[in-house]
Design a protein around this nucleic acid. Structure first.
Lengths: 334, 334
DNA sequence: TTGAAAGCGTTACCAT
DNA sequence: ATGGTAACGCTTTCAA
C-alpha cells in the first residue's frame, strides 16, 4: 500500500506538502500542487483513514444503533440518516441489537472502540427498572460523544431526541374508528415496557373516554410489538369467538401479525370483518396500492432529524437540548 | 480519552504488558494480569481501533456495497452477512450505491480509505459495454483486497461469487403457469443490462419453446426491475386492453409495481384476472399470509455464503475460485 | 515474565 | 511556499 511518504518522494517534496494538497490547507504553489495531484492519481493513492483518525484525534464516523433491521420503520429511518451522512461526507457504521440488551452492550463497546464521533440510538428495550435505566445511561455517557435518541425514549436522559406523537397516534387511530361508526373497539398493544407503547395505549383509552365508550379489559390484547406474538394472540382471539368489531394495531409488526392470522382464518371470506386502524404505515402495502387505514409519520425525516441534531450537537456541545416531536399523519381511506 | 500508556502507568507496568493482556498474547503473570484488568475495568478503557489498525497494518472491517437498501432482497442478504460478521467479531461498513455508478465509485474509494479487509459487492449496474466493464474491474482490483460478488455478475471477473439460478427461475416460473393451464403468457422483464435479467428472460422463453408456446413480442414488457417503471408499464398495458392471461414478474420490485397498477385499476373487482408468478418472494406478503405464487431463494443464506467465501479467501489468498449458485425454491399455492 | 524502542501513516506546528 | 519533526495510540521485536 502506497503511503504519503512515497508520494512525497515521488514528487520530490515533503510529506507536509502532500498533506497540504490532500486537505487543501495552507499554501502550496500551483505547479507543485498539480504535480503532486498527478502522482496521486497515477499511483492511485488514498490516505489511510486510520492514520488520519489517529493523527487528527478524531474519526469522521458516526454510529447508528438500531433494535431491528428487518423492520421497515427502522429501515426508513436509516435511509434518512444515510442521506445526510452522505451529503456531509461522514462514514456510518450501523449495528443491529435485535432488541437484546446484551448485544446492545457489545455494540456500544464497539462504537467506543471505533471512536465514533456521535451515536444515533434507539434503545433495545424500555429499561423500565431503575437499575437498567441507570446502567444504559451510564454506558451512553461513557461514550463521551453526542448521542441522539430516536423513536424510543430513555428515562432521565439528557440527550437530544426525535420522537413521535405517540399519544396522539393512539388517540387519532381510535377516534377514526369511532367517527366511522365503531363502538366496540379494542387494541392490540405493543411492548408495554416501552413508553411509547404505553402512550399509544393511553391515547386509545383517552379517545374512548372522550367519546363515552367503555375500555374493556377483554378487548385489550398484548401483541408485544412482535409479528409472531401478535399472530398467536389474534389467532386465540378469533378462536375464542369473542372479539370487538374494531381494533387499534399498535405498530407495523402488530399489523403484520394480525393480518396473517386474519388471512389464515379465512374469516374475511365468510364476511366476518374486524375494522382496523394501524399505527405506522407499511411501505410494501403502499406500493401495492393496498388501502390500509393508519396514522403514521414521515419516517425518513425522523432519520434526517436525528442526524441533523447530532451534527448540530457535534458543532456546539453546549447548545440547548433539542427534542423534536414529529407529527402524526392520517392516512384513512374510508 | 484514556490510553494504553496511562493504563500502564496506573498499573505500574509498561505498555507492552498491557498490550499483552489486551490481546492475551505472550506471557504475563497472573497477578499482573488481574491487576491490569481491574484498572482497565475501573477506568473503562477501550483500545482505539484506529491505533490498532495502524499498528497491525490491517483493519478488521469488511465492506458491503449494495445497490439498494429499500429492497427486501438486499436487506435479507445484509442480515445474513451481519450474522456472520458478528459471530466472527468483524466490523461491517455498509454502503448504498442507489444503482448509481458514480456513487459506486465514491463508495469504493471510501472503502479503500477505510482499508477494509474485503468487500462484498453487488454492482450498481450491468456494465455491459466493454469500457465500463473494464473500469469497474480495475477499481475493484485496485482495492487489493478480496472481493465477493453477490447476485449480480461482472463480465470477466476473477472473483468468488454467490449467484442465483436465474435461468431456472424464469423457466420454472413460466412452467408453472403453463402447467396450471395458461397458454398466453407474457413477462415483465428486468433491467436487460443486467445479465440476470437476460437469463430470467431466457428461462421464460425456453420454457415457452419447450411447451410449444409462442413468445410474443407484444407480451414482453420491460419493467426495468423498478417499481415505478413497472407500475407505468402495467398501467399502459391494462389501458390498451390487450394483455396476456398470465405474466412472469422478473423480481420483487416488478411485482410491487404490477400489483399497484392492478389494485388501482380495480380490474380484479370486475373479475378480470391476470395470473402471475413472480421471481423472488416478498417478506411482508409472507408475513401477512398473502399467498403469492413465486419462485425464490434463501436470501439470507446468500449473504452468509458471501461472507463465508470472503473470510475463506482472506485466509487463503490462492485457494481455488469458488462460485456458489443457490437453488431456486418453488412457492406455489395453486 | 517484563520493558524499551521502533514503527505504522498521518497531521500540524514551527522554522526557514 | 516548503520542510523537519513531534505526536497520535497501539503492536511487536529484541533484550534482559
Amino acid at each position: 500500500m502506497i503511503t504519503i511518504g512515497q508520494i512525497a518522494d515521488l514528487a520530490g517534496v515533503s510529506k507536509s506538502t502532500v498533506s497540504r494538497v490532500l486537505n487543501n490547507s495552507g499554501y502550496v504553489h500551483e505547479d507543485t500542487r498539480s504535480r503532486i495531484e498527478a502522482i496521486i492519481e497515477q499511483y492511485h493513492y488514498t490516505p489511510s483513514a486510520s492514520a488520519q483518525n489517529l493523527s487528527r484525534r478524531a474519526t469522521n464516523t458516526i454510529g447508528v444503533v438500531l433494535p431491528e433491521l428487518d423492520n421497515s420503520f427502522y429501515m426508513e429511518v436509516l435511509a434518512g440518516v444515510a442521506e445526510v451522512v452522505d451529503e456531509r461526507n461522514f462514514a456510518m457504521i450501523v449495528c443491529n441489537t435485535s432488541n437484546d440488551a446484551k448485544k446492545e452492550r457489545a455494540t456500544l463497546s464497539m462504537m467506543e472502540q471505533q471512536r465514533v464521533r456521535g451515536v444515533i440510538f434507539a434503545p433495545a428495550s424500555g429499561y423500565s427498572d431503575a437499575a437498567a435505566d441507570k446502567s444504559i445511561r451510564l454506558q451512553l455517557k461513557n461514550l463521551k460523544v453526542p448521542v441522539v435518541l430516536v423513536d424510543r425514549e430513555i428515562k432521565n436522559a439528557p440527550w437530544d431526541g426525535v420522537f413521535y406523537e405517540n399519544f396522539q397516534s393512539g388517540y387519532l387511530a381510535t377516534e377514526h374508528l369511532i367517527q366511522t361508526g365503531s363502538r366496540e373497539i379494542g387494541i392490540i398493544t405493543g411492548d408495554m415496557d416501552l413508553k411509547h407503547a404505553r402512550e399509544r395505549y393511553r391515547g386509545y383509552a383517552q379517545a374512548m373516554e372522550d367519546y363515552n365508550l367503555p375500555v374493556k379489559d377483554a378487548y385489550t390484547y398484548n401483541g408485544n410489538y412482535n409479528v409472531e406474538v401478535t399472530y398467536q394472540v389474534t389467532k386465540q382471539m378469533l378462536q375464542s369467538g369473542v372479539y370487538p368489531e374494531a381494533l387499534v394495531l399498535s405498530n407495523n409488526q402488530t399489523t403484520l401479525g394480525f393480518m396473517k392470522a386474519m388471512n389464515e382464518s379465512g374469516l374475511n371470506q365468510e364476511g366476518v370483518q374486524i375494522r382496523v386502524v394501524g399505527i405506522d404505515h407499511i411501505p410494501v402495502l403502499d406500493m401495492i396500492g393496498y388501502q390500509y387505514n393508519c396514522v403514521t409519520r414521515d419516517m425518513k425525516s425522523m432519520g434526517r432529524g436525528a442526524i441533523e441534531l447530532l451534527l448540530a450537537r457535534m458543532e456546539d456541545e453546549k447548545k440547548a437540548r433539542e427534542i423534536r416531536i414529529v407529527p402524526c399523519i392520517k392516512k384513512f381511506y374510508d
